[in-house]
């Protein structure tokens, strides 16, 4: 707890008012009353707002608290996972996202159900999405709690309740459209504030040469390769493969106007990410020279805001981190609650009206937001590694069914179901038995799930022509 100036409270309250205002304004009247509006914003979002929303949803507490913590701990080499993530976007832009937009579904399990002509596959996809996204939210809540506790001295539990309550209110009221427009504002805050803070931080720390000399002496690996190229390849693969099939990103693709909008939005999203990548990499490493020892690297970003930079800049940084958390939580809650209310409920009660589904949706928005809080009270790892676990799960169980399934018409129902289950279980088991061969769990997860997908598809009954018709021109 620091003696912080009143500026922090004014800026924080101002930010909450602006974000709530956007949410309530976009959700005014009857605009978010049906599923088409609530889940995919009426498919009306353009490339710039859409790109910012893609970036804001991806850049979460994992980036500002987690990645910065890892940079603090390990130095500069970790920044090279970003090119891997951008390659993932490229894969998505070439083979996945535009096709998803063209298909005009409401949710990702909708696509799975139709592509594999199987209610079981749709149900499994919905359940696995709900589980993986709950893990993701745990990471967000822990980071929000750390931030508010470090800067304001608010107990962890209350801090996360405040953050989540505000997010749920605007998500609830305005649905995907409110989520996308507030994401846009939040992306501007994230990129702008951190970019502005970096020069101040470098000057405070005594300039680049001094920093480099100091941390090299502290530990030569900080300016060299703390992580080997093999490690970095693993991280890049986690982020790259999962980025291409991440359900909350794919759901955002449905909100865009056309396949070309999708491709442009991905480009604008990468621009936002590049600005943030540079800022986080620099500030994490520079913080190491100012604070050589901390209990956990996750505290580095909060300390930066509270003690290093002038109060106004610090307050804006706190808001930027909260923006990162809230934009991700709102996108994730819409997708994970729709997995239950739209997909599972729709399977259990096929003749449910849209109104009934919407009512279920709002109830599950609350439930999906509250469940991770129980786990966040006692976190099981550093924030970045919680996020990496959920990315690994998504990459392993979803990559074949979504990315390969959109491009290979030989895939069958049994292949999709088998690959989802094998991918999910491989990641969990590989992690539990302590990563044999020194491999990160995502690599066997993705490899096994692709092999199973191919082999099972080869030996099982092909899909009827009608099921493939929406996806392939020449069946």
């Amino acid at each position: 707890m620091f003696n912080i100036s009143d500026t922090f409270y004014y800026v924080l309250i101002g930010y909450f008012v602006i974000i709530l205002g956007i949410g309530l304004w976009t959700g005014r009247g009857d605009k978010s009353k049906n599923s088409e509006e609530f889940l995919v914003a009426g498919r009306s979002i353009g490339a710039v707002v859409g790109g910012a929303a893609l970036a804001a949803t991806q850049m979460s507490a994992g980036t500002f608290v987690g990645s910065m913590g890892v940079h603090w701990m390990t130095g500069v080499s970790y920044q090279w996972f970003w090119p891997g993530l951008w390659l993932g976007w490229l894969v998505s832009a070439l083979w996945v996202a535009p096709k998803m937009q063209k298909f005009r579904a409401l949710t990702v399990p909708d696509y799975i159900g139709q592509r594999y002509n199987s209610k079981l596959a749709k149900g499994i996809a919905a359940v696995l999405i709900f589980v993986a996204l709950t893990v993701s939210l745990i990471g967000q809540y822990v980071a929000g709690g750390i931030l508010l506790q470090t800067v304001f001295g608010i107990p962890m539990l209350y801090g996360s309740i405040i953050t989540i309550a505000i997010t749920i209110i605007y998500t609830f009221k305005g649905g995907m459209k409110a989520s996308a427009y507030s994401d846009f504002v939040q992306a501007l805050i994230m990129a702008g504030c951190f970019f502005a803070a970096v020069p101040i931080l470098v000057i405070q720390a005594g300039g680049m040469e001094h920093i480099a000399a100091f941390i090299t002496e502290l530990d030569p690996r900080l300016t060299g390769f703390y992580y080997s190229v093999k490690d970095l390849f693993g991280f890049a693969m986690v982020f790259g493969v999962s980025m291409a099939v991440m359900p909350y990103e794919l759901a955002k693709m449905y909100t865009l106007k056309s396949p070309r909008t999708v491709r442009l939005a991905i480009g604008f999203g990468m621009v936002f990410q590049a600005i943030v990548a540079l800022s986080v990499s620099l500030s994490g490493t520079v913080m190491r020279s100012l604070f050589p020892t901390l209990n956990t690297g996750d505290a580095a970003s909060s300390l930066l805001a509270a003690t290093v930079v002038p109060p106004l800049v610090g307050a804006l940084l706190v808001v930027a981190i909260l923006a990162a958390i809230m934009s991700t939580v709102s996108g994730v809650i819409i997708v994970s609650s729709s997995a239950i209310s739209h997909d599972i409920y729709g399977l259990l009660k096929p003749n449910a009206t849209d109104k009934e589904k919407m009512r279920m949706n709002k109830i599950w928005c609350l439930i999906a937001g509250v469940i991770p809080m129980f786990f966040a009270i006692r976190p099981f790892d550093m924030v970045q590694f919680i996020i990496i676990l959920q990315s690994s799960l998504i990459a392993a169980f979803f990559f074949p069914a979504v990315a390969i399934g959109l491009n290979w018409k030989g895939a069958t129902k049994a292949g999709a179901i088998a690959s989802m289950i094998v991918g999910f279980c491989t990641v969990i088991i590989w992690r539990e038995i302590g990563n044999p061969l020194g491999l990160h769990e995502v690599i066997p997860g993705v490899v096994f799930s692709c092999i199973v997908y191919y082999v099972v598809s080869k030996f099982t009954k092909p899909l009827p022509r009608e099921a493939l018709l929406p996806f392939f021109k020449d069946v």
């Binding site: 951008w86 832009a93 300016t223 480009g267 990468m270 621009v271």
Partner: peptide, 23 residues
């Protein structure tokens, strides 16, 4: 003690995305 990589990769990507038309 990334910028150039990002400018080349993302710049190239945006040019491609801008000139690619929908079928």
């Amino acid at each position: 003690l990334l910028v150039i990589y990002a400018i080349v990769f993302i710049g190239g990507y945006l040019i491609w995305a801008y000139y690619t038309k929908d079928e």
